[in-house]
Write a protein that binds this DNA or RNA. Structure first.
Lengths: 157, 157
DNA sequence: CCCATATGATTGACGCGTCAACAAAGGAAG
DNA sequence: CTTCCTTTGTTGACGCGTCAATCATATGGG
């Protein structure tokens, strides 16, 4: 007689799930709020600036930028629009492909990133690294891996 | 000589952090997407319906509802507005306090919740409970607790 | 060369969340 | 009763994200 696969969480598992998701959510939100108040950047702004800063010539094609951050092009386009209005970034035409564009980091953008960087790292340390024991940190890594695997498999059952 | 407290994450810790936050984010987003496609409800809709369903008389004052879910009143107000337009919920005047209102679950709302419930639980099981070993699940709970403690303390150091 | 289609990028509509401002009513103190 | 403060709830503006539609340019097949 084959073992029947369980399909639903128990009450206990459900409680753990809710606590887990609410806590990570609160963590994200606290990080975002600190980043915002310390440097007027959103996490999305930060991700874009970070990626551009590490790119050849401090500029990238939108598609490439989106791919590196793991966003859809549409999301990036909106984001760049907002950042351009604030002068963090500039759009230029692409020489080799007339459809294309080039997103360039401005000096204001680079400066904003520099200012945000240390406070941001400090916050990560204070809110994530510090509260966890080394063992818990390692466990967090394992859990991440396991969950990612579960996400990649759009499996039935 | 007192030990100097570390202030910043190492490269390794930073990598774990990024993986962790990205994965939980992807998890949230996948859950939301399934809920949406299976029942046309957002996680926020679901939370409101769930809370109302368990409430005395299937209705609550907005403040109380917001408190139970852990939201700000403003957020709830917007949410209720959208849900009211879709007929999931109804606003009534409050008898005992003329400032106040009462949010009432409609039968459409109750039905939508019933339809969403099982698929949602199945998704939680498939994406969270199933990929983790029992030990990892327990570890997740510990980590949640530790992180929550870190969040509650707006401490220096 | 010409058409079909693929690719790069943007746009608009809409849901979601935060913040700050506000209106309206309750309640306590004089 | 009047004044002041609190509580309840809503609103508007704006950033953020997704989805579907759109447009222009590349590109490969005839």
């Amino acid at each position: 007689m084959a073992e029947r696969r369980k399909a639903f969480p128990t009450t206990e598992e459900l409680r753990i799930w809710r606590d887990f998701i609410e806590t990570t959510e609160a963590l994200r939100s606290e990080l975002a709020s600190r980043l915002q108040s310390e440097s007027s950047l959103s996490p999305s702004d930060y991700a874009v600036l970070l990626t551009l800063r590490e790119a050849e010539g401090r500029s990238l094609r939108p598609s490439e930028l989106a791919a590196r951050i793991g966003w859809q092009r549409s999301r990036l386009s909106h984001q760049i629009g907002r950042m351009e209005r604030r002068g963090l970034v500039r759009r230029e035409e692409c020489a080799t492909d007339s459809r294309g564009a080039e997103v360039v980091l401005t000096s204001d953008g680079a400066e904003a990133f520099r200012d945000a960087s240390l406070p941001h790292l400090r916050a990560v340390h204070e809110l994530f690294v510090n509260p966890l024991t080394p063992g818990q940190l390692a466990a967090a890594e394992e859990i991440t891996t396991a969950l990612r695997t579960g996400l990649k498999a759009p499996r039935d059952t």
